[in-house]
Design a binder for these strands. Structure first.
Lengths: 304, 304
DNA sequence: GTCTTGCAATGAGTATTTCTCATGTTGTCG
DNA sequence: CGACAACATGAGAAATACTCATTGCAAGAC
C-alpha cells in the first residue's frame, strides 16, 4: 500500500538526482531507498524511474506519483503545523549564528518564510559574535549554527544543507580570467579581499593557501559582497567566494570566476543543532525550508 | 511520522463510529487500531477523539486530520487508479450475482460510478440464476456474489458491506401497525407477499417463521418492490423487506413498518469474492464504492 | 585495454514497527 | 448488581523496513 514515506522519497530523489544523495536527505541509506522503491515498483507493477541517467529520469508512472506528492505533501505539512499549534508546541526559540558570512543571501528568505508559519517561535540572529559559536550551542545560548566545519561534539547534530564550490572572482581583464583554475602560488602575486573575520574561518586560507604555505601579496577586507565586487571589478584585488554568492555578478558579466586549484575547493554547509531540538516540528520545518530556498538560490548552478 | 495509514484509520473511525467497527473496515483488530491511534496521539501530543461517546466525537486535532484525510485520500486513490491503468492492470471481469433481491437499489449507483472509473473492466449482472451462485464463484463463472449467508468455502473471502434489519411492511390501518413488533404467530393470520424465490433465501422464513414452526395463512409473490408496496398498502397482505428498501415508502407514509420479533431480524450483507481477486485494484475500488453508496442509501436509517 | 570512481542492486541479517492474542478496565443498560 | 459492549494494555509474534557488506555496472582517466 502506498504511503507518504514513498512520496517523500520520490520528491527527495527528484531534488537530488541520485539515490545516494536522496538517501542522505531522508536520513536513510542508499540501500534502504533502493529496496523501498523496488518494493513499490513491484507492488505497482510499474517502474518509476530510469537509473542509468544523471540526473535520474522519471517514467510516466514516476511522474504521476511526483504530481501526487506535490499535491499531497504540502497539505500534510500544513496539517502538521496546525496540529503542532493545537498541541501548544509552538513555543520555541531559534537563535542562530552564521560562520559563513555570505550565507545571509539565502538565509533571509528562509527566515521570512519561517516567521510566517511559526509566529510563536522567537527568531534572532545576534550579530558580531566573537566567541566560538559551537560551544555556545551546547550551552544553549544558541540553537542553530550554520557552519562548514563540523566538529564532533556530544549532543550536537550536523545536518548537511548543500555543497558549494569556493571560486576566485577576478576582474574581466585580469591575467587569470579565462584560466581553468589558479594555483596557490599564483595568488602570491595578488591582493586578496576577504570579509573581516579570522583567517581560520575562510576556506581560501584553510583549504587552499595554508596547505601550500603561500600568502597573498596583500590583504584587504570588505564588509559586504557588493563592495568586494566593486573592488574586484576595478582590478584592486581578487576575492574568494562561494559559487552561489557570485552567480548574479557572473551573469551580469561584472567579474570572472576561476576555480581554486585543479579540483576546486568544495565545502559542505551544515546546520549544527542540539539533538534535542532536532525532532521539534519547527526545527524540521526550518531545515527543510532552508534546504529548499538554498536550492532556489543555487538554481542554474551545478550543486555538487 | 504521519502516514496515510493513519488517515485511512481516522476516516474509517468516523464512518464507523466505533473502534471495533472501524477495525473491521480496515481489516485489522480493534487492538491494532487502539495502539495505532494511541501512538499517533502521543507523537502529536494531542488527543484525537473522545472515546466515551457514541458515535465517537473528534477533537479539534482529530477534525483537522479528518479534513486532511478528505483532501488527500481521494487524490491518492485517483493516482492509484492512474497507475493501475499505466500498468495495464485494468483488464478484468466483474460478473456478479445477487441473492438479496432488493439490493439492486443501491447496487445500480455503485455500478454506474464504477463504470466511469474502470472503463476496461467488463461488468455484467447475469439475470435469473437458478443455480447456487457461491459454487459458481469458485468455478470462476462469477466474480462477486452479494449474499447475506456466507458459507465457509476454500478460497472465498466474505467482505462485510453493512448490517440491515428486516421489517414487516403493513398497511397504515392494519391491526399490527403501530405495535412495537410482531410475533411469528401473528403472521399465521396474514397473507405474506415475497419475491418469487426459494424460501431458504428469505430471512423472514429462515430467521423468523421456520424457527417458530409457523406458516402464513397465505402466500403470494411479486417481482418488484413497488408492486409489493401497492398490494400491502391496499391491505392485500404484508411483506418483509430490508429497512433500506422501505424507507422511501415509509417517508411518504405509504405503509407502516413493524419489527420482526422483540429483537428484530438483523442480517449482514457480504460481498463474496475469490481470494485472488481481492487484491485487484478495481475490486478494492468496487467494494469501497459499494460500501459508500450503501451508506448514502442508508442515510437517516440507523445502520446497526 | 584496464584501472579507478561513483552509483545502484542485492542478499543476509538486524532492528523496528506494527500487528494479534489474551486479558484487564470502564461505562451502560436492564 | 451483573451482563455486555467498547476500549485499553502488555507481551509476544509477524511483518516490514532498515543497515551492512558486497557485487555489478557504466563512464572517464590513463
Amino acid at each position: 500500500m502506498l504511503e507518504l514515506r514513498h512520496l517523500r522519497t520520490l520528491i527527495a530523489l527528484r531534488d537530488a538526482g541520485s539515490l545516494v544523495e536522496a538517501a542522505e536527505r531522508v536520513h536513510l541509506t542508499q540501500s534502504a531507498l533502493s529496496h523501498q522503491i523496488k518494493d513499490l515498483e513491484e507492488r505497482l507493477d510499474n517502474s518509476l524511474f530510469v537509473r542509468k541517467t544523471r540526473p535520474v529520469e522519471f517514467t510516466r508512472a514516476g511522474q504521476r506519483l511526483l504530481t501526487l506528492a506535490e499535491q499531497v505533501l504540502p497539505l500534510v505539512r500544513m496539517a502538521e503545523r496546525d496540529l503542532a499549534r493545537l498541541a501548544g508546541n509552538e513555543q520555541g526559540r531559534l537563535h542562530m549564528a552564521i560562520e559563513c558570512h555570505s550565507c545571509f543571501q539565502w538565509l533571509m528568505p528562509t527566515v521570512d518564510h519561517f516567521r510566517d508559519h511559526w509566529p510563536e517561535v522567537e527568531i534572532d540572529i545576534p550579530g558580531g559574535h566573537h566567541f566560538d559559536p559551537l560551544p555556545a550551542l551546547t550551552r544553549e545560548q544558541l540553537d542553530l549554527v550554520i557552519t562548514a566545519d563540523p566538529q564532533p561534539l556530544a549532543g550536537i547534530h550536523y545536518e548537511p544543507l548543500f555543497r558549494y564550490e569556493g571560486l576566485l572572482a577576478v576582474a574581466r581583464q585580469h591575467r587569470l580570467a579565462g584560466k581553468p583554475f589558479v594555483t596557490p602560488e599564483a595568488l602570491a602575486e595578488e591582493t586578496l579581499i576577504t570579509y573581516p573575520v579570522e583567517h581560520s574561518r575562510l576556506d581560501v586560507f584553510t583549504q587552499f593557501l595554508d596547505p601550500a604555505g603561500v600568502r597573498p601579496k596583500e590583504l584587504r577586507t570588505a564588509e559586504l559582497t557588493i563592495m568586494m565586487m566593486q573592488l574586484v571589478a576595478s582590478g584592486r584585488g581578487v576575492c574568494a567566494l562561494p559559487n552561489w554568492a557570485l552567480t548574479e555578478y557572473l551573469e551580469r558579466d561584472y567579474v570572472k570566476a576561476v576555480a581554486l586549484g585543479e579540483k576546486g575547493v568544495w565545502s559542505t554547509l551544515f546546520a549544527a543543532i542540539r539533538e534535542e531540538t532536532r525532532q521539534a516540528p519547527w526545527m524540521e520545518d526550518f531545515l527543510r525550508t532552508a534546504r529548499e530556498t538554498s536550492f532556489a538560490v543555487l538554481e542554474g548552478i551545478k550543486p555538487a
